[in-house]
Simulated scan of single mutants.
Amino acid sequence: MSWTSTLGLRWPILQAPMAGAQDSALAIAVSRAGGLGALPGAMLSPEGLAAELEAIRAASAGPINVNFFCHAAPTLDRERQARWHRALSPWYDEFGLDLEAVPESPGRRPFDHATCDVLEPFRPEVVSFHFGLPALDLLARVKAWGATVLSTATTVEEARWLDAHGVDAVIVQGLEAGGHRGHFLSNDLSRQMGNLALLPQVRQAVSVPVIAAGGIADARGVAAALALGADAIQVGTAFLCCPESRASAIHREALMSEAARHTALTNLYSGRPARGIVTRLMRDLGPISEAAPAFPLAGAAIAPLRAAAEARGLGDASPLWAGQNASRCRAVPAAEVVRELARGVAR
């Protein structure tokens, strides 16, 4: 029996957790359709996390994956912060905003004991991590209630590390994937590769199940990933235009336009490389900027710009996260997306 079957899943299909673009509604819809819905917890307050988990359990939707970040909380570098503000100054002038009013709030918190205190009473069946794994005592708490632990690898070396440090399955994030890169052993993006090359290498290198993520949008992509050795697949972009998603109207419009054909890795929105549709901000400053503060501090100065531009109907400063294959991003119920993906699973 496969590990996804032991979780009670009908299909080896996981919905990628997408912080800022979804809440419990999408997770519930995917789980009800036989896949594994995911709730992104990195941007939720303790109260918000509890409310979302209560909604999921009240819906009796089946197994759920709750996802967290494992980044090291950065120390504010005021010199770098000043460079970042200088780089954004023309944009603040354009939108009539005050740079002096920018808060220093990080916006995303790493997984900690306080968060685990909120999570533990709900006993989610799966807990997944991005940017490595939490400290051993935190990992032990999660495993103590029987949760399946997943984490993301962008290289063979990261997959081996995760296998050696207690994950139950590795999410293999190809370079095609949208959103934040999950790398944690090296910041060298040239070491990362697409799924066609990465997936079979990881399959050979680890003893645990592997989950393919990146560039998969339909049944053919599912079949290809499974043929390359994946035990399951994880899909994000294809769910963003579903009615259960919380993606903005601007984001949805971009996803279903020709603009979605041009994505790039950028650190402008958070301080860490993430793939999204190319925006005016990315063209203006370059997608990767040395001035951007460490993750997640860069986002504090971007948030007012995003709000001001979106108020004018513009996505010029919005993080329009998307993978390299948005071809199946449609305004259809999430259950229909799951059914389409499931056609690629051999019976």
Rank of each mutant, 00 (worst) to 15 (best):
T155R: 08
A135Y: 02
S190K: 10
V156Q: 13
L240F: 10
L133N: 09
E120C: 04
R57A: 12
P110F: 03
A254R: 15
A50Q: 11
P333Y: 05
C70R: 11
S105P: 00
L285T: 03
R80H: 11
H113K: 11
L36P: 08
G132L: 10
Y92M: 10
A33D: 12
R86Y: 01
S45T: 15
N67R: 04
T4H: 11
G48R: 11
A101R: 15
S24Q: 06
V102D: 04
L36M: 02
V206T: 02
A274K: 09
R108N: 12
F68K: 10
A301D: 09
A249V: 13
A219G: 15
D98N: 15
I277Y: 04
A55L: 12
G178P: 13
V170K: 00
G194A: 03
R220C: 10
D168F: 02
V345C: 09
S24G: 00
Q204W: 02
G179R: 05
A33T: 12
F95C: 00
L139V: 15
F295L: 10
R80K: 15
A303L: 15
H183C: 03
L49C: 05
V332Q: 14
A205K: 11
A274V: 07
G166W: 14
A294E: 14
H262K: 11
W11M: 01
A301G: 08
R306T: 11
F122D: 10
A238T: 09
V172K: 05
Y269P: 00
V102K: 10
G229K: 10
L136Q: 14
H262D: 14
N325T: 05
P121C: 13
L26F: 12
L199T: 01
I64W: 07
R252G: 08
G299V: 01
P243V: 15
R83T: 03
R160H: 07
G194D: 03
D188G: 01
A342Q: 08
R141W: 06
E104P: 00
L305Q: 10
A301T: 09
L341K: 07
A144P: 08
R312M: 13
A301F: 00
G62T: 04
Q234H: 02
V30L: 10
D163C: 01
S248F: 05
F295G: 13
I288D: 00
A259G: 06
G315Q: 13
G35A: 06
A72N: 14
E158W: 01
A33L: 09
N67D: 08
A50M: 02
A25R: 15
L268R: 04
